[in-house]
């Protein structure tokens, strides 16, 4: 009985703590027309301390969305355009000689910010990519002999060009795995685009108010961790991840020759964390299967490797995830 009381208490706590979600959504809605999925994904990443990989054609408000989010949270935002000649020092910073002080001083790079938009991450060579991904993982950067902690919260939103494009360095699987979510953005609907035109033709572009402090985010993250996840949901998550590794054990033998590698243990952690964050956004103190299904595509689409056979048959990871969700038994 005491457990039930805890869940109820947690529900009430979440009702209180998650009120800012609506505020952020309202503020962002002033600037961003449509793209609800993007906003929701940003919040999931923010609340579960996970980074996001974005894929979409230019002009879909990727930069504007993260900039607006940073403005609503009173946090620092930096945009880094990744180019083939970018060096790790351009990203994390370097030691420069100060004639005045007659000494080397640290010049911090643009990574020292709360929100980073790493634009076209696959335009840069592997050494720059790994410098960013290392910072993402360790949440700290070493310049010379000094180690500096990165800001809190620290959220990286990286955009990626389609890898078929020439002059790109595709992210290796191990590095892509470090992104909690991969969000694929599509064009806005007709009505939404009408709103975008009107908004941009208006005399004054809407501005957002700061509704949250970075400390509030850190506090909310603790609450998200407390969201209750039942054993049945844990089993459901494991079933989904294991079905990507051993499809034949889940009545999905047809995928055996199509999947080169399945989701890693990091995928299980990310799916659980993202589900909890989604439940929090939906003002619930417990996770239900709907939460897992809602974030499953975004967590898994970049973590399943396809074989040449799958590519030849035009089968995408989206198709595989959809089929897995339609086959794995829901608790």
């Amino acid at each position: 009985m005491s457990e039930t009381v805890n869940i109820r208490e947690l529900n009430e706590r979440i009702q209180r703590e998650s009120s800012f979600v609506d505020l952020i959504q309202i503020e962002m809605g002033k600037v961003i027309v449509g793209q609800k999925q993007l906003i929701e994904s940003l919040l999931i990443g923010l609340l579960s301390d996970g980074h996001i990989l974005l894929e979409g054609v230019p002009g879909l408000a990727k930069t504007l969305a993260i900039k607006t989010l940073a403005e609503t949270i009173d946090a620092k935002f930096n945009r880094i355009q990744f180019t083939p000649d970018l060096l790790p020092a351009d990203l994390i910073g370097t030691m420069i000689y100060s004639q005045k002080e007659e000494n080397f001083i640290v010049k911090k790079g643009p990574i020292f910010s709360n929100f980073i938009l790493a634009d076209e991450i696959n335009r840069s060579p592997a050494k720059v990519q790994s410098a960013l991904l290392e910072a993402m993982q360790e949440k700290q950067v070493t310049i010379g002999a000094n180690t500096f902690e990165l800001g809190k919260p620290f959220l990286v939103l990286a955009t990626q060009n389609p890898i078929e494009q020439e002059g790109t360095y595709p992210l290796p699987e191990a590095q892509v795995d470090r992104f909690m979510l991969k969000v694929v953005i599509d064009y806005p609907k007709k009505e939404e685009e009408r709103g975008i035109i009107r908004q941009n033709l208006a005399k004054a572009f809407p501005t957002v108010s700061k509704v949250l402090r970075p400390e509030d985010i850190l506090k909310a993250r603790d609450v998200v961790k407390d969201v209750y996840m039942d054993e049945k949901i844990e089993k459901y998550i494991l079933d989904i991840i294991f079905s990507t590794r051993y499809p034949q054990e889940y009545n999905l033998s047809k995928f055996q020759s199509l999947i080169q590698y399945g989701g890693s243990p990091r995928a299980s952690i990310s799916l659980a964390m993202a589900s909890k964050a989604y439940a929090f956004i939906k003002r619930r103190g417990y996770v239900i299967p709907e939460d897992v299904r809602a974030v499953c595509h975004e967590v898994l689409r970049h973590r399943i490797g396809l074989t040449y056979e799958a590519e030849a048959e035009n089968i995408t990871t989206e198709d595989i995830i959809t089929e897995i969700l339609n086959t794995v038994e829901v608790p």
């Binding site: 009985m1 457990e3 039930t4 805890n6 869940i7 209750y228 039942d230 049945k232 949901i233 103190g285 417990y286 996770v287 239900i288 299967p289 608790p331």
Partner: peptide, 8 residues
């Protein structure tokens, strides 16, 4: 609620 939120 019973299955996933320990409701009794």
């Amino acid at each position: 609620m019973v299955k996933f939120a320990k409701e009794e």
